[in-house]
Design a protein around this nucleic acid. Sequence first.
DNA 1: TTAATTGATATCAATTTAGTATCAGTTTTA
DNA 2: TAAAACTGATACTAAATTGATATCAATTAA
Lengths: 155, 155
Amino acid sequence: MKVLTKKTDYAIRALLMLAAKKGSYISTKAISAEQDMPYQFLRGVLQEMIRHGLITSKEGVQGGFMLEKDPDEISVKQIIEIFQGEVQVSECMFRKQICINRSRCVLRHEIMRIEQVVSGEFQKITIGGLLRKLTAANSAKPALNESDKSSSETT
Amino acid sequence: MKVLTKKTDYAIRALLMLAAKKGSYISTKAISAEQDMPYQFLRGVLQEMIRHGLITSKEGVQGGFMLEKDPDEISVKQIIEIFQGEVQVSECMFRKQICINRSRCVLRHEIMRIEQVVSGEFQKITIGGLLRKLTAANSAKPALNESDKSSSETT
DNA sequence: TTAATTGATATCAATTTAGTATCAGTTTTA
DNA sequence: TAAAACTGATACTAAATTGATATCAATTAA
């Protein structure tokens, strides 16, 4: 059970970069190089975020993307919803067919409770919040955007 | 973002039926008919659960499947793990590559916290618990396994 | 012996996910 | 003004996952 897709992951990390340099344009090339994401794929992700009003762009040389919204107003939940759709359980089975039998209903009720929990947790996490943690981590340790194998838990 | 796949859904509901008639064998045919699940697909799901020791089977006429474990010892988390793998975030990116850069690490930390929350919620829900809710619902309202459009919220 | 059943596979189609390629248009700058 | 560095908009592809079907062998009860 995988929670985040690549698109969501790339989107969040791109937004973190844009938030860190709010007010200036950063090119797809710069983001993809620094964050190690496939260039063309990232372009698609960024364009999708323009459509959703999270960022703006400037064409041509010195162009790129810039954060549009307040980082504290962008939640991970919003980003997930853009790239993976609403946090929900089993699409059709609980929504379209509307509770076929009791065991489905009982199960559905419990699952929907979890849906709320998960959704709420993702809403709590914002780009602004993540960025502050990121900056705090950076000031504690010298390396800024380099590889960091010291804090690696394999989990 | 879909939480449960069909396999997990079918598995849970099949287990609920087996738990309700613990000690006796129920055939795939009976389960698939009552719960409206595709016969061959369900067979695969049931066989997978045998391999994981949740149920046992008896071949031949009057054969079928029987619950092996205590319903209170079977959590939805276990079932998800059988059919969808461990509740985790973005496989490779946080595990295999072990924290490539800081933004990934910070994000990972938050996501892993949610992972714990979600996982914990799924662990709380057991077949036994669901069954009790199911029975309580059934005694409140007459219909046992029939369609139930009265308690339908479209969400 | 036959019908009902599971065991074990093999196969398939649709969807989703991840990624690549291309061409047109825009803007800076040399 | 022309080239280079960009985005906009699509079209395409490959691989993985999901959901489902089909088949044949073995087993068991009646």
